[in-house]
Amino acid sequence: MTKTIQEIKQMLANISNQDDPQIALLYADPRKGVHQLLNSWEKKMTSQINKKNNFLKRFSYERELWSKNYQFIAGVDEVGRGPLAGPVLAAAVILPKTFDAIDVIDSKQLSVKKRNELYQTIIEQAISIGIGEVDAEMIDEVNIYQATKIAMTKAINNLAPQPDTLLIDAMTLSLDIPQQSLIKGDALSNSIGAASIIAKVTRDKIMADYDIVYPGYDFKQNSGYGTSKHLAGLKKKGLTPIHRRSFKPVQDILQHHNTIKRETND
């Protein structure tokens, strides 16, 4: 009995091997609708193959290190250097050789839904995950560059087991651990990409909680970045304890409010 177009569509959804004998039979089917389904299926398979190849390529640094008997390779990345409020947060992730989440890459290239899905996968598959956080007060004290280094170091120190080598996104740390600094490393290394996803999702959750504590700044949506709603909230409500007073837009608001306060007192 000849399958309907809908039945063939459902069948193709469960076929991932181009050598499957059912595919050859479908090519012999004269119906236009069947060939349209086959074209769509072929594009999907090509996309998956390319995605898998790119994933394997992003493991090239790790494979080289594994071949040199490094067992615990930590990818390290941060998020939150640019916002006006909230912490800078770093993550360090040690992945197993069997890690298979082929969509893992720089968190900025992913939708919120996909990031959250991959976050759970990384949590389940990673050998170890470490988080390091530095608050706004410390950022103001030491500057954001140094605060980022502190956050990364904290994340690494929170790993168990401790790594025997590091792959770090565009940073070098004063640690007695062999390390490579990779520019745009979150798009070159699966370990760094995984760290970027963990860091981003974790920090977004923190800022969503702050949105409840400090309403009126739209922290849940902007994660502390200087959006129009955030700046409007600053002008209307003033600073919160999580604002970075060393950042110029915040400095301007602080100076404005201090000027008004002085004039009122005079």
Results as ranks from 00 to 15, higher is better:
residue 28 A to C: 01
residue 32 K to T: 14
residue 128 S to N: 00
residue 146 Q to V: 11
residue 85 A to Y: 13
residue 111 S to M: 02
residue 130 G to P: 06
residue 135 D to Q: 11
residue 265 N to L: 14
residue 164 D to M: 12
residue 226 G to A: 02
residue 122 I to H: 04
residue 180 Q to G: 01
residue 199 A to F: 02
residue 99 F to A: 06
residue 68 K to Y: 01
residue 117 E to M: 08
residue 145 Y to A: 09
residue 86 G to D: 04
residue 241 P to M: 11
residue 242 I to G: 02
residue 122 I to R: 11
residue 240 T to M: 05
residue 145 Y to G: 05
residue 118 L to I: 13
residue 250 V to F: 02
residue 209 D to N: 14
residue 66 W to H: 10
residue 254 L to N: 09
residue 160 A to C: 06
residue 190 N to V: 15
residue 240 T to S: 13
residue 17 N to S: 13
residue 20 D to L: 06
residue 39 N to T: 12
residue 27 Y to N: 06
residue 39 N to M: 07
residue 265 N to T: 11
residue 49 I to T: 12
residue 230 H to Q: 11
residue 205 K to P: 05
residue 111 S to V: 07
residue 186 D to V: 14
residue 233 G to W: 06
residue 248 K to E: 13
residue 132 G to I: 09
residue 177 I to D: 01
residue 22 Q to R: 14
residue 235 K to F: 05
residue 52 K to Y: 10
residue 262 R to W: 08
residue 105 I to C: 15
residue 42 E to G: 01
residue 233 G to I: 07
residue 156 I to D: 03
residue 33 G to E: 13
residue 184 K to G: 05
residue 238 G to I: 09
residue 32 K to V: 14
residue 242 I to Y: 06
residue 194 A to D: 05
residue 257 H to L: 15
residue 84 L to S: 04
residue 265 N to P: 01
residue 183 I to W: 00
residue 128 S to P: 00
residue 83 P to H: 03
residue 130 G to T: 09
residue 227 T to Y: 00
residue 11 M to I: 10
residue 33 G to N: 02
residue 18 Q to E: 13
residue 26 L to W: 12
residue 232 A to P: 01
residue 19 D to R: 15
residue 16 S to T: 12
residue 57 K to N: 01
residue 223 S to W: 06
residue 259 T to C: 02
residue 98 T to I: 05
residue 97 K to S: 15
residue 92 A to R: 00
residue 143 N to H: 10
residue 107 S to T: 12
residue 165 T to P: 03
residue 74 A to I: 07
residue 163 P to G: 07
residue 15 I to V: 11
residue 254 L to C: 05
residue 87 P to K: 12
residue 176 D to M: 03
residue 140 D to A: 10
residue 14 N to M: 09
residue 79 V to Y: 09
residue 115 R to T: 10
residue 253 I to T: 12
residue 246 S to Q: 08
residue 181 S to C: 05
residue 151 A to K: 06
residue 63 R to W: 00
residue 191 S to E: 04
residue 233 G to L: 13
residue 61 Y to F: 15
residue 208 A to R: 08
residue 170 A to Q: 09
residue 119 Y to L: 07
residue 78 E to K: 11
residue 100 D to T: 15
residue 249 P to M: 03
residue 266 D to L: 14
residue 52 K to P: 03
residue 97 K to Y: 04
residue 211 D to T: 07
residue 43 K to L: 09
residue 10 Q to W: 05
residue 260 I to Y: 01
residue 211 D to Y: 03
residue 110 L to C: 09
residue 72 F to Y: 15
residue 123 I to H: 03
residue 87 P to Y: 08
residue 92 A to P: 02
residue 123 I to G: 03
residue 159 L to T: 07
residue 243 H to K: 02
